[in-house]
């Protein structure tokens, strides 16, 4: 019984916005299954009372003053854009409204 099915991999690809080909799905599903087998070893560790670490170092309250710093020029901002129009980023039509 694999820990992840081909259908689940296809679902993940949709979530991650990657248009995987059938070949890739065939290839990737067993590889991911194998890797999940490896990483699932973390559940062997008894850690109920252990606090999680999301930051390696215990810093807190790092904030900046509410001050303006120079922006990019619109030319710089748009310099890498695949397409631009009217000083805006031109993107393909958006079908669905924001989530």
């Amino acid at each position: 019984m694999p820990s992840i099915t081909r259908e689940e991999v296809a679902h993940l690809a949709r979530l991650a916005r990657i248009e995987l080909s059938d070949d890739e799905l065939d290839h990737l599903a067993p590889q991911l299954d194998q890797i999940i087998g490896l990483v699932a070893q973390v559940s062997d560790v008894a850690a109920e009372d252990i606090p999680p670490t999301s930051h390696a170092l215990p810093l807190s309250n790092v904030m900046r003053k509410d001050e303006n710093v120079p922006c990019l020029t619109p030319e710089q901002a748009l310099s890498g854009a695949p397409a631009a129009e009217d000083q805006r980023f031109r993107v393909p039509r958006i079908l669905s409204e924001e989530a």
Binding site: A13, E19, E24, L28, L32, S96
Partner: peptide
Amino acid sequence: DAEQVMRLTREAGFGAEVKRRIM
């Protein structure tokens, strides 16, 4: 549409290991 372009670009632009880890 934008979503399809995202999918196609990420499919073409990322290599196998990157896709594996994103998934």
